[in-house]
């Protein structure tokens, strides 16, 4: 009896926690269709006005363009670089590879503000002009560890007998990679790349300090937030949510990642 109470108490706390976690997102989507400036229940009518307002803004299209460029570049860059690194790391002796993993993992643990300011200070000392390029470079630092983590895990499960037999049948290391390893790990690479893209698209703090001028989607939200209540933020939020959810759901599906 007591056991039942404890078990159900856990369930109740857990569900409340998840509600607490997801409520903001649910509300954003809900109110992006709300036919009123005041965001409160009950919702009286539904409208697409906030989407229309948003899509008619010039700065939205500029921000969207910049976000697409940054996201794609970061996704491609960190996937390629991270995968190359993972291929070396899996062949290392256990101790060395553990050390390498924790070293490459460091940027994941660093608050984004510190990453951004350290880079900003260096760039300003070197006279590097801030641009979309600097945003991409900065994003590589914290997206690459995720790619290395995911790809290394996949390669560790990889049956090396397949590579041996490819070599035995006359394939060079490169041919073996191209014809055996790559086709098999392609879904993982695709998934890792999408996770990197979702992380990049979600970042505000680093982008804010690295971006010379113009906007990406998160900095556009920032600008709108500072001007006060503007329900088209909900519409923009819902769109960003859709994009990140779309990419990450796709990524999770492809990599079969659970935890």
């Amino acid at each position: 009896m007591k056991q039942h109470v404890a078990r159900n108490l856990g369930l109740v706390v857990g569900i409340l926690t998840v509600v607490f976690m997801t409520a903001p997102l649910v509300l954003v989507v809900l109110f992006s269709f709300n036919d009123s400036v005041v965001m409160t229940f009950p919702i009286k009518g539904l409208t697409f006005d906030w989407y229309r307002t948003l899509l008619s803004r010039d700065d939205f299209w500029g921000a969207l363009r910049n976000s697409v460029i940054v996201t794609l570049a970061v996704g491609a860059g960190s996937t390629v670089i991270g995968t190359l690194a993972a291929m070396v790391i899996v062949r290392m002796r256990p101790r060395v590879s553990a050390l390498a993993m924790s070293l490459f993992g460091l940027p994941m643990m660093m608050p984004p503000l510190v990453l951004a300011l350290a880079l900003l200070t260096l760039f300003s000392a070197l006279g590097v002009r801030l641009s979309l390029m600097t945003v991409v470079l900065a994003h590589l630092t914290f997206t690459m560890p995720f790619v290395i983590l995911i790809v290394t895990a996949r390669l560790r499960d990889f049956d090396t007998a397949m590579l041996d037999s490819a070599r035995d049948l006359g394939a060079s290391p490169w041919t073996a990679f191209r014809s055996v390893t790559f086709p098999i790990i392609r879904p993982t690479l695709f998934g890792a790349g999408l996770i990197a893209m979702a992380l990049s698209l979600d970042d505000f703090i680093i982008t804010f300090f690295m971006l010379g001028g113009g906007n990406t989607l998160p900095t556009l939200v920032w600008g709108m937030l500072r001007t006060g209540v503007d329900p088209s933020i909900n519409a923009l939020g819902a769109l960003i949510l859709l994009a990140t959810l779309g990419t990450s759901a796709l990524a999770l599906r492809i990599t079969g990642y659970r935890g």
Partner: peptide, 17 residues
């Protein structure tokens, strides 16, 4: 639900709150 909220837009969440 946990995976869904992983990437929900940091600023958008703050705005919602």
């Amino acid at each position: 639900a946990t995976l869904l909220t992983l990437f929900g837009g940091y600023l958008v969440k703050i705005y919602a709150w």
